[in-house]
Design a protein around this nucleic acid. Structure first.
Length: 286
DNA sequence: GCGCAGGGGGTCG
DNA sequence: CGACCCCCTGCG
């Protein structure tokens, strides 16, 4: 049954910023400018009107609780933006540009698999692959006359052979997804131990034991599903913007990740991950 | 028009 | 440091 929740005083909430800043792959724009997406066992439509956000959808639990958790509504982004804006003029400009960005609290399993798929790939194709995986191995939920498919849990995805995955267009990532899924099914590693690990560097090392997870993907997983707001995932865009703003090396590819990490830590401290999102969105869209 | 490099939110050997 | 699967883009 469809539920509704209205969140008032939504200063720091802009659907287009949240869903187009690269953190998620399962939200799509509707004709009226709202977005519909699926997360865990919920299908929700999100619409901003004036200073309110309207959430409507099919949820397994009370929609208010579900959305508060997923959209991190209890975190004070006005304060975060204030702090970051004071760091320098670039960050201030990027925050004005992406003023409604929020980091979603995404499902760990889905985030691990999704970002393994993201390696050397582009967003439309990543979205297509995840959609096909979900359609084949997930569960159907009907919402407003349309079919949506949940992201399959590890047992469901474990039924896929490497060939099955290849047929879904994963390319060379098929083996990585297969192996990582098997590692979880064999309990060589568990979602619980990852969620409980508080030390960011130990957590990073554990994630990197997974097939297809290197440093960048590990950082994305920690930032987007484990609330590690201090990590700073470095991809080509972030490298570009950091070099352009601060380092100014003629050839950006010569700038080491280590140097970028060090600068991010010095400048942004425990909010580096959030700074990364504003800078990334600003540079990529503008 | 069509064919062919070039490259995409990296990882692995 | 090059290859990797696939798809889309830009150029000739």
């Amino acid at each position: 049954m469809e539920q509704r929740y209205i969140w008032e005083k939504a200063n720091s909430f802009e659907p287009v910023h949240i869903f187009e800043c690269g953190q998620c792959f399962r939200w799509n724009k509707e004709e009226d400018g709202s977005y519909t997406g699926i997360f865990r066992n919920n299908v929700v439509n999100v619409k901003k009107e004036n200073n309110k956000v309207i959430f409507e959808g099919i949820c397994e639990d009370d929609i208010e609780n579900v959305c508060k958790e997923y959209f991190d509504l209890d975190t004070d982004y006005d304060m975060i933006k204030q702090k970051l804006s004071n760091i320098d003029e670039y960050l201030k400009a990027s925050i004005e540009y992406g003023s409604g960005i929020r980091i979603l609290n995404q499902d760990l399993w889905e985030t691990i698999i999704s970002f393994i798929i993201s390696a050397n790939n582009n967003i439309p194709r990543i979205k297509g692959i995840i959609e096909r995986i979900s359609k084949k191995y997930g569960n159907k939920i009907m919402f407003r006359g349309r079919e949506y498919y949940t992201f399959p849990d590890m047992n469901a995805l474990g039924k896929a052979s490497v060939e099955d995955l290849r047929a879904l267009g994963l390319g060379f990532r098929d083996k990585r997804i297969y192996e990582t899924t098997k590692m979880f099914l064999n309990k060589e590693i568990t979602l619980e131990e990852l969620k409980e690990e508080e030390d960011t560097s130990i957590l990073r090392d554990k994630l990197m034991t997974l097939s297809g997870v290197g440093g960048k993907v590990a950082d994305c997983i920690m930032l987007f599903s484990l609330k590690k707001y201090d990590v700073f995932p470095i991809d080509v865009w972030v490298r570009r913007v950091m070099n352009e703003l601060y380092i100014k090396e003629a050839d950006e590819n010569k700038v080491s990740k280590k140097l970028i990490q060090k600068m991010a830590k010095e400048k942004y401290e425990d909010l580096a991950g959030l700074a990364q999102q504003y800078l990334f969105y600003w540079k990529r869209e503008a």
